[in-house]
Design a protein around this nucleic acid. Sequence first.
DNA 1: CAAATCCTTGCATAGTGTGCAATTACTGCA
DNA 2: TGCAGTAATTGCACACTATGCAAGGATTTG
Lengths: 198, 198
Amino acid sequence: MALSLRERRRLETARDIQSATFRLARDRGFENVTTEAIADAAGISVRTFFNYYANKEAAALGIPPQFTEAAKDALVNGKDALATDLRRFLRAHLDRISADDHIVRELRVILRDSGKVRWMLDEHLSGLRSDLAACLVQRLPDGNARLAAVLADWGINIGNRTFESWLAGDPGVSIAATLDGLWADNVAVAGILTECTG
Amino acid sequence: MALSLRERRRLETARDIQSATFRLARDRGFENVTTEAIADAAGISVRTFFNYYANKEAAALGIPPQFTEAAKDALVNGKDALATDLRRFLRAHLDRISADDHIVRELRVILRDSGKVRWMLDEHLSGLRSDLAACLVQRLPDGNARLAAVLADWGINIGNRTFESWLAGDPGVSIAATLDGLWADNVAVAGILTECTG
DNA sequence: CAAATCCTTGCATAGTGTGCAATTACTGCA
DNA sequence: TGCAGTAATTGCACACTATGCAAGGATTTG
């Protein structure tokens, strides 16, 4: 077996806490949920809750996905235009997120209500940004770190906006379609930007 | 007089609290500063502290500047290329910020230490982003709101990165020069982006 | 089985943030 | 000037957040 009993239980408890948080947030609104209530609902002590998550916002967010090694490899060694490979990269990540329907649907409401959860998501995005920048340095022909940082920033940003816009919009629209729309807008903005650099 | 005694005192107390926060943060590090200590140092009760600021992070941040009406007018009615006017707009705002040397120098350290202060700054930036988007809708020939939102997002983003990079870099470099450098990088990224939209 | 390790828990404690009501300080108006 | 209204300050009580510590229980490893 890949995971020991201890590890499996730990994961399970972490999930139980997250579900309990979602359930309570649905019932009474996230801001009215206390760590004590979550601990009770999850069948653990408050002290144990804090062994799993630093606060109730972390419990709601859980552990958002990182980029996969496969996706990073494909970006670094891609043979298409950089813009094409980058869009594919973002799309793959967004698809993985949207596949976690169960969790995303619950988070949707909580993200609206809680600035602190949005902030924690932003902190996560900062990590992804560094990760992406590191890939792009390898991919760029001249290894230009400053350019990689700006491009990574831009990529994470459009990914984030895509997620937000997809969350806020019509449930029937796929996240890939949302990304394509935003991508087109960004290309238009890029045109405005290069129009005159005086 | 423009401000009543009450209003002047209120402003003064708000400033006193901020200075006290800075002083204590310098002495013992921001994370080791309590609201009680700030209140004591500012010569007020803890309860009064909370009448001014929601928490110590807000006390450190103070009230960051909004865009001026004059700058917004210049952007909406500007006659140069949009990219040129936008850059001027950002530069004007960044200049105003960097002019507040006293405060920015103290914030520099605190922003490094405290994620929560960075978050509150981000919340402020969200407000600026909406503000800027509203201007850009008026400025864009077709009143395209989606495009305005993306462009505003881009503008706020580069402004933010400029500020961060300027804070982190050589004190001798002006914020305008930092903006120009980042602007050039972004133009290059815009080139990559439009290179292939397949 | 025994030792090492990790997990859970209660308890103590420091700090955060808000509601309420009493008091004090300013403001506007007669 | 003086008085009524309004805003600011404060103490107190209270609920909640978060961490350190140490005791006891469960799991792992050999």
